[in-house]
Design a protein around this nucleic acid. Structure first.
Lengths: 241, 241
DNA sequence: CCTACCGATCGGTAGG
DNA sequence: CCTACCGATCGGTAGG
């Protein structure tokens, strides 16, 4: 995990004009030192911006975050984010796009891994739910909450693109829910079940506190038990004695 | 339902200065006509402001709504809302406070009404869920969504007051959930069940569309079936043949 | 990516 | 509740 966006540019930049005093004699290699290729500006300043934006958009909302806030968070000056993104809205969309793609990839991988054990549908749902909680509440989990709670601020065109990504994410769940429904363990139509279940999970972003209350494992147990009943499931494993 | 906030004040106000030409001779009863007592300004301009604020805060968010937007919505000029509320944040809190009090009152009344029939806990849960959907998605239902999705913008002190009101609302549900839990129909601890159920319900504010898809009755059936299983429940009643 | 800046908008207030 | 206004802040841009 890259945490380099914590450094402040100004701390290693040129001295302020006021410190340079009058005019320097015209030596050749003066001014801003040319960066050796890919030394500082290896192009993932863009990635840093997206991460900082995700964190701030989540904490203060899109409208409550200024592009200056974001610039400051990565040690840039106020106009510089617009060198990387043509607008504040483009930054928001980048957060959402990255969040959705990464979430779908993680779920697909988790499902593939779990499939080796020939699990039943309930076990697969458990995998999806547990992963969903991790995506939503785990470390560095600002992207999906922003996606969920700031979608009001994207354009119609962006909304269309995002709907495609959301549908990709849903389609990972679809066969699992379908199987459970056919086993009579869902209690209501698949489509409504998906919406209600996503709601129950997504809402946790509003109240979950990693430092107290249930763990993500306990949360997963509770959700599965609530949705598909008290069927075969491992005894509640508690980490602390 | 009062819809008078749709009228524009300017349409019945004084002509603009440019239309009055030079100086009028000093007749006595000129200028703004004195309103007969309680004719226009019967003090519920405040209520209109809260309603307009609720609608706008929901549609555009707190930070995305200007006090000028709200003033315009009720036919006031830009500074006038501050005659009724000392700040924009006070308006937000008024929306949330009103929303929570009204929700708790409605649920308490519904529960009292239903209790006449000596219903079991599942039937009571159905009443609460159905009412919750109505509060959240029915006509004029902007207050609770604002409360749910804009709480980031209130002060710590306001948050404390609001927590009390939220706890009042939860305590209406508590005995019902407790009873279901004791009957072994909940599948997980009451506290987690409440959080997950509220999540499933509250999330509907993000996707529910009154003009298509399930009705509130169907939604209620689905939610109950998902949470407490396929137990005694009336056959799904469809309005359309 | 910085510097310097622009026009627009915002919450809020004084004084009537 | 209106009028007239203020200082602050905002997204964004030109020009380097």
């Amino acid at each position: 995990m890259d945490t380099s966006h914590a450094r402040k540019r100004s701390a290693v930049g040129l001295p302020a004009a006021s410190e340079v005093a009058v005019a320097l004699p015209d030596k050749r290699p003066r001014g801003r030192p040319r960066k050796t290729v890919a030394e500082r500006d290896d192009g993932n300043r863009r990635v840093e911006l997206v991460h900082a934006a995700a964190r701030l958009f989540r904490r203060k909302g899109f409208d409550g975050t200024s592009t200056r806030d974001i610039a400051t968070a990565v040690g840039m000056h106020s106009g510089s984010p617009f060198y990387h993104f043509k607008s504040k809205g483009a930054l928001l969309y980048a957060v959402m796009d990255e969040g959705m793609r990464s979430a779908t990839l993680r779920q697909t991988a988790a499902l593939e891994l779990a499939s080796a054990a020939k699990p039943d549908a309930a076990a697969l749902l458990r995998v999806l739910v547990r992963n969903h909680f991790d995506i939503l509440l785990g470390p560095g989990s600002d992207f999906i909450p922003v996606m969920l709670y700031e979608s009001r601020s994207i354009t119609a065109r962006q909304r269309t693109s995002l709907a495609k990504l959301q549908s990709d994410y849903e389609s990972v769940w679809q066969p699992v829910l379908q199987a459970l429904s056919e086993q009579g363990r869902l209690g209501c139509p698949v489509k409504l079940a998906r919406l209600l279940i996503f709601g129950a999970l997504n809402w946790s972003a509003q109240w979950f506190d990693a430092k107290k209350g249930a763990s993500l494992d306990e949360l997963t147990d509770a959700a599965i038990a609530l949705f598909i009943g008290d069927d075969p499931k491992p005894p509640a494993r508690r980490v602390r004695p």
